[in-house]
Design a binder for these strands. Structure first.
Lengths: 342, 342
DNA sequence: TTGAAAGCGCTAACAA
DNA sequence: TTGTTAGCGCTTTCAA
């Protein structure tokens, strides 16, 4: 007999209906609180049955029938970067509070892997997809046919036909470097940034340059390195080896700043008195380093909320929103203060 | 007409079959590579059709029919604790490499929330569940009826009928404290640990005490605080305020160690010359602090792999596996060395 | 090697 | 207010 392969031992809606002495429709009405009303006593009987039998609705059947899975997909490069972890956690909370589940995938910077992840999620009938791509200039959805709503996180440039939300990298960088110049009178400010991007300049680099230029300062040294701790470490070593070391280092991520600090410490360079350090991101860790990092903090919660909202806007309108960062002045720039400002 | 509610615009297997001029069964055979053979030319035609139409199998229907979703659930307290993030990332990789997707949830330390998360995943037909509970002594599955395989992470005690995998907290702590005593000759070693657990002593506390006792040392001071940075910070402040401050602090987590270091720095206490600091976890960040942290490193990748393996073992056998930690000697204990040892 | 068709568990239109 | 039932898209048995 076709379709009679696997053994049944899990409770289904039919069992509940039988136990409660009603039809399966009524069970549905009770569970979904509609679309038809159910007499209070009947509803009570159904609830009892559900409880007694330990019935749990089958999500696959439900999703198949309704065409909606109440599940969204979230793809980020890596969870072991605190910024992505914080972002993922925020998004997960929003989704769960709205009764949705989250499929999570880490691309680990691999475009093929990222694509497989997205394909897998799409085939699992997600209702929406949020992607922080592993590349800042490629469309993670290129060549993927789907009409599932999608929001991109943190793309450096607008992508045709896509909605993207992130923070104002240029503005945040500008503000940070401006602080070093205007408040602390520093003039040799180095930049630690990611490796060259094909036909694209990191907006943080632009912001750094803008601030220097506005103050009539020459461009400081640039060290290009991976966006991780070891990248920052090597970049700082390189910067320190120059004949005239910088008075300050602007690291484009907290992770890089950790490496920079480490390299400075190893050479006995005092922070901030000999070299100031500031960075972009402002993850929770940055408040606890010593000296505490002065940062351009990305508004993680707001980015998450906005991304989640955009997912709902069925309008497939193109968007490229850049939220302002917060300049959090702590001690690593040379400012005073010892309290922990999270 | 019943069941004809929503509009069809997505390509289904019927479209593919029609386009390729075969039956839907054949499409299945091609997609699943069985269970019946298909002529090479026919298969080719089907593949063409799939490509042209941009067909993607409906996972819900598939899961409903097969009784298997190729999706697992993963619940952890919070992603913004690097240890959990690393663990989650490892597990996610294992799952994805095996063609499974991962539903992720963060309980944020709330038992009710944790329970809702698990319920939601179960109703979404996950094939397996991995939970790092938000409490170390309660069974996260208590009162949840399911026969989905489940593995618990990091429970401090064996739970009846459950499989649990974690690291040897007691042993790791013992080793760490022993190092401080045997190698560095320290005698006043403070412990920073979580708040009192009902009827349960944190094994790290036991290990700390065991090491002290073995060396005939009196118990050092204990500071109980939350397992986060601010907890470690406050604990250290408290410890430093004592008439006879400790020579070393053993923090039960890297996060706490960050807070401890911060408090020491603020009071101008030199690490490790005045107070040594060691901690449990050994996340990637710990190699980059200055001085780099000496830690009992939890074998994250191994824990992840073993947990994932246990999920597969249909044997519902009870288990309580404790993997040994690695003692990573860096500089915060007083040992020499300046290279980064990740 | 291929096709017809049952049925997984659920929702909801329609009838009663 | 409740029941009957089609059908969501898929897999697979059985027949051809």
């Amino acid at each position: 007999m076709p379709g009679s392969t696997h053994v049944r031992h899990v409770v289904t809606r039919a069992d509940v209906a039988r136990y409660a002495g009603v039809s399966t429709a009524v069970v549905s009405y009770v569970i979904n609180n509609g679309p038809r009303p159910v007499a209070a006593t009947t509803a009570e009987r159904v609830k009892q049955a559900i409880d007694v039998l330990g019935y749990r609705p089958n999500g696959s059947a439900r999703a198949l029938r309704r065409g909606v899975s109440d599940t969204i997909g979230l793809v980020t490069p890596q969870l072991d970067n605190l910024f992505f972890a914080e972002l993922s956690q925020e998004i997960e909370q929003l989704a769960v509070n709205a009764g949705k589940a989250v499929l999570l995938g880490n691309s680990l910077g691999d475009l093929r892997h990222q694509r497989q992840l997205i394909d897998g999620m799409l085939s699992r009938q997600i209702d929406g997809l949020i992607v922080r791509g592993s590349s800042s200039h490629d469309d993670p959805l290129a060549g993927i046919r789907t009409n599932v709503p999608c929001v991109l996180l943190d793309t450096m440039v607008p992508l045709p036909g896509r909605r993207s939300i992130g923070s104002d990298l240029r503005g945040g960088a500008d503000q940070l470097v401006d602080h070093l110049i205007a408040v602390h009178g520093l003039t040799r400010i180095a930049l630690v940034v990611g490796r060259d991007l094909p036909g694209l300049v990191d907006p943080r680099e632009v912001g750094w340059r803008d601030a220097l230029r506005r103050h009539g300062l020459p461009e400081g040294p640039i060290a290009r390195a991976a966006f991780d701790r070891i990248g920052g470490y090597r970049a700082a070593q390189q910067l320190l080896a120059a004949p005239l070391p910088p008075q300050a280092v602007f690291a484009s991520s907290d992770l890089q700043a950790t490496g920079v600090r480490r390299a400075l410490h190893e050479t006995g360079t005092k922070v901030p008195s000999e070299v100031a350090v500031v960075s972009f991101d402002g993850t929770s860790e940055s408040a606890f380093t010593y000296p505490a990092l002065t940062v351009a903090r990305q508004p993680v919660a707001t980015i998450a909320r906005r991304a989640y909202e955009l997912l709902g806007d069925d309008g497939t309108t193109e968007a490229f929103e850049q939220l302002p960062t917060d300049l959090i002045v702590r001690q690593s720039c040379g400012c005073a203060g010892t309290t922990i400002t999270p």
